[in-house]
Structures are given as C-alpha cells and as structure tokens.
Design a protein around this nucleic acid. Structure first.
Length: 701
DNA sequence: CAGCTATTCGTTTTT
DNA sequence: CGAATAGCTG
C-alpha cells in the first residue's frame, strides 16, 4: 500500500523531485547499494566501523526523495547527537537540491521528541511553553526531595530514575520491583520527582522520548497522525537506542514498518545510560520480515589497525557475525609506548605529534588524542600549550553547561515559562539582589502549600504575612521586571513582540538591566571575568543570529537551546588543530593519526567499584558486561585511526599525593600485536633531551 | 545576606 | 595537587 502511494506520488511530483545529479548509487559496493535500495519492508543495516554507514543513510534519503517520489516532509532521519544530525544534513544538502529537501526532518531523537511534545503538549497536560530541565536542575530537585547533600546518593537516585524512564517503567512498577529498601526509596523519589517536574511545567531529557512514546501508545488518533506524517524513518546508531526509543520508533513507524535502522553492535558504548544492544536482536523477532544487510568493507583504516581492532573485539560474544576487511594496504606497525607517568605521557605525545607533522608533512588536524575520561585532557592541554601546538578539546564541558550561559538562560527560561522554579531560583539569586536563603525558603513553603509556582506566589497577598516588606520588595521588583520582558517578548500572546522590538534589542536590554557584566568583574579576576563576559557575548550573538536567520521568536529559541550541546559555529570550518576527545565523543569521527592514551587497567577498562550488594553471581555477570562495554570502547578508539595508531600507558599515575603503580590494559594483549608491534620504550632520553631534540627539529622547519 | 577561609574529596562516559 | 563544599565572620 505504501509503495502504491509512493508511485502515485512519484508521477505527480516528477518535475520537482528529480535532481540532475549523478545516479544515487554511483560508486557504492553491492551491500551498500542493496541497503540504499531496499524498500520492501523494515531493514537493518549492520555497518562496521568505517564501512560508510552515513553514506548509506544520506544516499537512501536521496533515493527516497528522487527516485521513489517520497515527499521530504514524510521522511525523517534520527541521530543521537546534534553533531551527527548536522553532518548528515550537510551531506544530504550536497546531493539534493534545496527544493527537494524542504521539510525533511534530520534531527536527534530528543529534538523530534520536543517537536511532538510541543505540538501535542495539551494532550499530556503541559503548556506548550514547557521548560526542559538541565542536569543540575534535576540534581537540585532530587537534593530537595531526599533532603540530603550527599552528591553520590543524589547521583545514584537520579541515575536510577533515568534508567527507569528509559526502560518505560513507571514509579508504581519501580516500587513493586524494588528488592532493597534503598531501591524502594529511590522509587518513591521517582514519583515525587515526576510530580515536581509537572508542577514546574518542566520535563527532563528522558521525558522528551518517554512522554511522546506514551502519548502515541495511548492515543490512537495522535499515533495515526504521526504515522502518516513520517512515512519513512531512518535511524542512525541503532545500537545506542534504549527501550523507550525503540518503542517510539516502533510507534512512529506503525504496522507499515517502513524504516531503516543502521547500527553496529560492536560499537555500543552507551549501556550506562540505558541503551541496550538487545534492541538489535529484538528487531529480528519483532519484525520477522526484517532484511538484514551487512556492511563489512572498511574504507578507513589500514589492515594492521583493522586486524588489531578485530582481535580485540573477538573477545566479546557476537550478536551478529561480521568480518571487517580493508584493501588499503598493510600500513605502519602499531606503536605501544610505556611511560613513567602522565606528564611524561603527555609530553611524549605532544612531541611525537610535532615530529610526525614535520616528518609526514601532515596537518595538525590529522592528529587526535583520545582518552577514556575527561580529566585526562588537562595534562595534554598543558603539554600541547608548551610546544605551541594548537588544539581543540571536543566532548568536554559544553557551551551550554557553562555557568555564565546557564545564568542568562535562566532568565530566558523564566520569560518563556514563569512556572519554571529552578530557573526562578537561579535568576533571582544571580546576580545577588537581596534575596537569600531564608527568603526563598519562606517563599517556597508558601508556594508549596498553595501549590503554585514561586513566581506566582510572589504576587499573592497571603505572602505578606510571611515575609517582611524588606524581603518582599526585591522579589516583587524582580517579578515585575520579568513580566515586562515577557510582554515585550510577546510571550503572553505567543508570538511577535507587541512593541515591534527585535529579539536582539530585548536581549541586550535584559543583560544590561541585570548588570551582569559588573557582576562578573566583581566576582572573578580580570582574566576570568573577561573570558566569561566573552562567553556571554558569544551567546547573545548566537541567539541574535539564530533569531534572524531562522526567523525564530525569542521564545522558540529558548526552547530549542536546552537541546543544543555545543555551540554550533556552523561556519567554523574545521580549524587546523589537534583534536582532544573522549572515546565516547570520538565515535563517528576519523583521523589519519590517532594517539590512544592511558591504555591502562583501571582506566581503559574503567571498571569502578564492584558495588552490587550480595549475589556474587549477578555481580560477576555485570562485571563481565562492563568489561565488554569497555572493550567496545577500545574498539571504537582503534577504529578511529586511518594510517597510524599509537597507544600509551603509564607505569604510575598520581592520585592525590601518592603515585599509584599501573598495569598495561588487558586490551593491549588482546590486540595480538606479536609480529608487527614496536614496543618503543623511548630509551635513554630524558624529558629535557627530547625537548631539545624537538626544538632543533622545529627550528629547521 | 554575602563573601571568605578551612576542609575534604577524588567525576567514566552524555542527550 | 586542585577543585568543590561546608561552615564561619563581617
């Protein structure tokens, strides 16, 4: 039935859909071509690292639009990260004319969730101006609910809540299933946490998937509407979907099941946030007519690198048998470098990069330093700075997590949704304006009794009995200030500023009125304040540009932003710098020369505390599962490399004041480097000597 | 109420 | 060693 519809579509839209471009499948291997052209039902593409999966998705979009008569508005591609979405959109743009892709959806799961939720807000009991809570807002809420400041405990509770949400488990069921008292406690917190969010007219990240999924499940009319709207769905990184996302995809595609899922079970590295590889297997049972296509030719790495990767991953149980191969030649031996400590490691890597760039006439951007955890980046940054090597840290703290940005955003969120209590608290106390802990507590108590938001409580006459005039005055003044801004931004009416002001003018006014620049200079030293102020200016600039370009109202912008993780200076063509990145953030990227650092037991197989109370059998099982995920992480790291791969590990590493002795990672042995390894001990040279050698090298250049 | 000092502790990964 | 936090003083 769908194909008939497609044919029908085709005949009437022939004129605008055909692009005068090379055939969609030019230059693809048979498996890729099959993946692109298979439209007879649900399709699972098992795409090994570097096998051209993004290409398959983008080409398939092109094929759907050009050759199959799909209207762009009925096609959606889903990714996990904004970066991936952006890259995909760019690549689609390159193969299809603008008019053919108008209305095409290429977004993250979460953005799609927002879109659905925004449109259907009323049906789930939210106003469409709901706020999206950031991680630390959620922390604050749970902190309140458990009446404890133990960060570890709060994190644990939040993580439990998140896992429940991702598994589509409601508080009742969570409580029923709880086997320990602490789990039962967490389940009760889960219930009140949800209630709190509701009263703030807020949702958290997980709700962005969960609420739409639940809505589609219960409301047939909405479900059918969205099913006819998204007639073909492509899902990237399918191995990273959680139960909730699986359900959402299932509900969106409905009985027609017209979708292509692309994934690689060997690259599943997000189990800790609820992703389950079983979703891949589940597809084969839920859709008996599922077509499974394997992409096994790797176009990225030399054979030695690929062999090492294959050897490592061979230690994991296989869900789907897959043998990656490459015809790019054997390549250089993989280098393993033992180091004294983390400083020697960083310095050595920096020097090796400098030397290699010189010897290979390479660019800085050809190099990447990959590590397991963020804090490892510090030492490397220092070492690179010392050698004047330009670098960029990706996957670190994101722009929208910086305090300055979150301060300003709190104001904007409050303008969009004055029931957003976390935003209220943050805005009303930064900069300080004479509203402190005791005032807020009284206000909170009052608002709690009346079951209204803090903002609404400020204007209640009953509050006058609880607070002194001195405490009340700054509160009222603040709220009136916000009200004026709301009016100017047109929030009350929903769109368009009544005064005809631009978003830009309102923004400038806001920041000036709260005296934020002065606040920064009062609280930080010259350098710090300057840097932070610059961040604010970047934010404002970005907001203004976005408001103009996308013709978004200030309100729409504010809502969009919670989802954006990195400042997309979209035209910031990749600068010629060395990349520093976590292994997680490196997925999907590739570099000619990769340095995989800190490949040590306890770091690369990270394996934290083996908590799990009781049941040693279960503990062993979860331990094994964690090793397997770490192994996949190692696999991801290795397969980022095209030409050369260098591993380093430290014999000791400082923790606190002691040096802790370290062992090389088990994964190094698993690579099976016997014949082609070069265990370069970097003998004889002190750090000083190596530095001198490098300096002379640089001089010649 | 806000800023400063003393103390404690040690973050895996992210939408 | 450095950052985040709790508790104390102006």
């Amino acid at each position: 039935m769908d194909r008939a519809a497609a044919r029908l579509n085709k005949s009437k839209s022939d004129t605008n859909a055909s692009f005068a471009l090379p055939p969609i499948d030019a230059g693809m291997n048979p498996a890729q071509r099959e993946a692109v052209k298979y439209l007879d039902g649900p399709c699972l593409v098992l795409a090994g690292a570097g096998s051209g999966k993004t290409r398959v998705i983008t080409q398939k979009i092109g094929y759907l639009l050009r050759d199959c008569g799909y209207d762009a508005r009925n096609v959606a591609a889903l990714t996990f990260t904004n970066k991936a979405a952006r890259e995909m959109a760019e690549r689609v743009k390159a193969i299809a004319p603008p008019n053919a892709i108008k209305g095409l959806t290429i977004s993250t799961f979460h953005s799609l969730g927002v879109r659905i939720l925004r449109e259907e807000a009323k049906l789930v009991g939210l106003k469409s101006q709901f706020s999206i809570l950031a991680a630390d807002d959620a922390m604050a809420i749970v902190q309140d609910l458990v009446a404890s400041t133990d960060k570890g405990h709060i994190r644990a509770v939040l993580s439990a809540i998140s896992l429940w949400k991702n598994a589509l488990i409601e508080p009742d069921e969570a409580e029923r299933r709880a086997s320990t008292e602490s789990e039962r406690d967490a389940a009760r917190v889960y219930r009140s946490y949800n209630a709190t969010l509701r009263s703030y007219q807020s949702v958290d990240f997980d709700d962005l998937i969960r609420l739409p999924a639940r809505l589609l499940e219960t409301d047939a009319e909405v479900r059918e509407r969205w099913q006819s709207r998204l007639r073909y769905l492509l899902v990237d990184e399918y191995q990273d979907t959680n139960a909730c996302q699986y359900r959402l995809v299932q509900l969106l595609t409905g009985p027609r099941a017209m979708f292509t899922a692309v994934g690689d079970d060997d690259q599943a590295i997000y189990a800790w946030r609820g992703a389950t590889i079983e979703n891949l297997a589940k597809l084969t049972t839920d859709y008996p007519n599922l077509r499974v296509i394997k992409l096994e030719q790797n176009y990225r790495s030399m054979q030695r690198i690929l062999a090492a990767a294959n050897n490592v991953i061979a230690h994991n149980p296989k869900l789907f048998e897959k043998k990656l191969w490459s015809d790019l030649g054997v390549g250089d031996p993989i280098t393993v470098v033992p180091m004294e400590d983390e400083e020697a490691e960083a310095e050595s890597v920096a020097m090796r990069i400098s030397a290699a760039r010189f010897e290979l006439k390479a660019h800085w951007r050809d190099f990447a330093i990959l590590y397991r955890s963020n804090h490892q980046a510090r030492v490397f940054e220092q070492a690179l700075r010392n050698l004047k090597i330009p670098y960029m840290v990706s996957g670190g703290q994101s722009f929208f997590d910086k305090a300055e940005v979150r301060d300003i955003m709190a104001y904007l969120r409050l303008i969009a949704n004055d029931d957003d209590d976390p935003a209220f608290i943050r805005a009303v106390t930064t900069p300080k304006r004479g509203v402190g802990q005791s005032t807020l507590e009284a206000l909170g108590a009052y608002a709690g009794e009346r079951e209204i938001s803090l903002f609404a409580a400020v204007f209640e006459t009953g509050l006058e009995q609880r607070l002194s005039a001195r405490q009340l005055a700054p509160l009222r003044e603040f709220c009136e200030f916000i009200n004026r801004l709301q009016w100017r931004a047109g929030a009350a009416k929903g769109d368009g500023a009544p005064t005809g002001e631009t978003a830009s003018e309102i923004l400038d006014d806001l920041v000036r009125a709260i005296g934020y620049e002065r606040y920064l200079y009062d609280h930080f030293d010259e350098r710090g304040a300057q840097a932070r102020w610059q961040t604010v200016l970047d934010l404002l600039g970005w907001l203004k540009r976005k408001a103009e370009e996308d013709k978004m109202s200030l309100m729409e912008l504010v809502q969009h932003i919670a989802l954006i993780t990195m400042l997309e200076k979209s035209d910031d063509e990749d600068p010629d710098v060395v990349r520093l990145s976590t292994l997680h953030a490196s997925k999907g990227l590739e570099y000619p020369h990769v340095f995989l650092v800190g490949v040590e037991e306890g770091l690369l197989p990270h394996l934290g505390k083996d908590d799990e109370e009781g049941d040693p059998a279960k503990a062993a099982e979860s331990f094994e599962a964690r090793v397997q995920e770490e192994r996949r992480l190692m696999y991801v790291g290795i397969t980022r490399a095209r030409r050369t791969l260098t591993l380093t590990w430290c014999k000791k590493r400082k923790r606190g004041r002691e040096d802790i002795p370290r062992e090389p990672s088990r994964f190094i042995k698993e690579m099976g480097l016997e014949d082609d390894k070069v265990a370069d001990e970097n003998p004889g040279l002190t750090a000083k000597q190596r530095l001198d050698r490098l300096k002379s090298l640089l001089k010649k250049e």
